[in-house]
Amino acid sequence: MRLGLRLPQRVGTDLRHDVTEVAGAAERAGFDSVWAWERLLFPVAPRDSFTPGAPWPSAYRQAADPLTVLAAAAVVTERVRLGTSVIVAGLHQPLQLAKRFATLDQISGGRVVAGLGTGWAVDEFEAVGMAKSERGRLLDETLDVFDAAWGPDPVNYRGPHTLIDNAYVLPKPASPIPVILAGDVDVSAAGGPNARVLERIARRSDGWMPLFPTPGAAGAQKLRAAWDLIRQSAATAGRDPSEMEMIVVGNVAFSETPLDDDRIGFSGTTAQILDDIASVASAGADELILDLHLQDWWRNTRQMLDKALEIRELVSAAGI
């Protein structure tokens, strides 16, 4: 299983130096990828939350622009993939986003991974004049525009928010950009998985980017069952599921003492985090993104990087 690392973007980050330092160190240490995430703003009184009823994490107060962060990482690395985990499609004009991804792919020599999600924050959608209720359709249009803009010229496309009339759209990506979609495909949920989310991932994406909320064997079983369902649906749609990849996001929250069995995935001691990494690997994940800077444990970039390098060594030693 490949291992990726989220780059520093939050409050307390020295963007001029920390991004390039972490990207270079991650590549030298053997990480396979580096990732950036998106939060457009931090409302003082948010109208909703990713976890209903919970406050937004304090780290959300700043999330530096992900594609700009990845461009900085691109110029100091040669090998690691550069991914978004995730960009909220509906917060961007689709053609402009397609051009930004293609430009970054040219700068990096074809190393970009476009991780996209529908988003969940009403405050962010309203800030750009969009409605949260349209988020699925906005993502679908973004995928359509990517196909058109990254394809042969001249480009012709007409959609709800984009019109390309017999025009050249350059640059093109240096190589095909994998588009990985986030979304909840919980086969154990009441009523089964969200059919629209499942269909979009199976038919339109190059892979799936889930979280890992349930640790241990139970979590691995749920993750594998969902992944099997996605691949079966992709095969039914006439696609080759072996060409898709599952990239799991691990939002790490460290504890000095072991947490009980009811903990959420990637919370607890270093030993418990390593158990979760092994569980994700056993579920068939192709890659795991370690995020060590969203939680209150984070103090500064140097501390985060030291811990990331320690985990990288432990994972290698364990043969995961």
Rank of each mutant, 00 (worst) to 15 (best):
G136F: 01
V249Y: 15
R6E: 09
T13F: 06
F31T: 02
D276N: 10
W37C: 11
L91R: 04
A220R: 12
A45R: 15
V249M: 12
A217P: 12
G136H: 08
F50A: 13
G151K: 12
S133W: 09
H17I: 09
M1I: 05
R263E: 05
S58R: 15
V19I: 14
G12D: 06
G250L: 04
Q93K: 12
S49R: 01
A220P: 08
P43R: 04
P160D: 15
A281W: 08
I87Q: 09
G265I: 06
A202F: 06
A29Q: 07
R203P: 00
L15Y: 10
G265E: 04
D260W: 10
I201D: 04
P173N: 07
N300A: 05
A190T: 13
L67Y: 06
H161K: 15
W150V: 03
S255D: 12
A278H: 14
L5I: 02
D123I: 00
D165P: 10
E27L: 03
R10L: 05
A220T: 07
E124S: 00
T13A: 12
V112C: 05
A308R: 04
D306L: 09
I264F: 14
D206M: 07
I320A: 07
A121T: 02
G110L: 02
E287T: 09
L95Y: 10
S108D: 03
G250Q: 05
G12P: 05
P178N: 10
R158M: 09
A64Q: 05
